[in-house]
Amino acid sequence: MGCITSKQIIKHTPGYEEPTVLASETSFSVNEVEALYELFKKLSNSIIKDGLIHKEEFQLALFRNSNRRNLFADRIFDLFDIKRNGVIEFGEFVRSLSIFHPNTPEAEKIAFAFRLYDLRHTGYIEREELKEMVLALLNESDLFISDEFVEMIIDETFRQADSKGDDKIDPEEWEEFVKQNPSLLKNMTLPYLKDITMAFPSFVLNSEVDD
């Protein structure tokens, strides 16, 4: 065992941000951000060891298979990739995961879910987008349902959610719909995030050392 000197230089990954800054902007405490850094390092070095989460690494973590494509995983990855440069940096990872924290206000979760389902970034969830998502889900689940039945499900969903009757769901209608169907938000909360410091303890020896 070597000894740790007070002058040890800590090398962080590109895109690293200070835990105190991230904690001040998110639902996480400083300790939780440090624990998330441990998880981030693991995910971001699983295939390409550059300290950034690439799409294949995200797929590997979600599905145990780096080649498994999935419409919804792609959407999540794109929303986490705030700078839209094809990788998820540490700050993006923490800010995005914060949406899923149990203490984050519901309004943020509702808005995130809307962006997730607005596949073409039009500001609305349209019938075609909803159908594309239903078909993707059915395909992923190896379920075979007739096109007629899929259309019935879409019609029924729009009957409930599209209160203005213009064949698209706007953010206001979405908010109302989610309030009537709160189970739609269950994916937007990860209880794990409350226990993250136990799952990924960061040994705070690596606190920044002042000169």
């Binding site: 995910l43 999935n70 995961l97 909803l130 993707a136 889900l137 029924e156 994916n187």
Partner: peptide
Amino acid sequence: KPSLMNAFELISTSQGLNLGTLFEK
């Protein structure tokens, strides 16, 4: 009269939306 399951309920079952697996060791 029972209503059809809404599409978003179906979609929310996708594994691609289950980020909990990120935390599994």
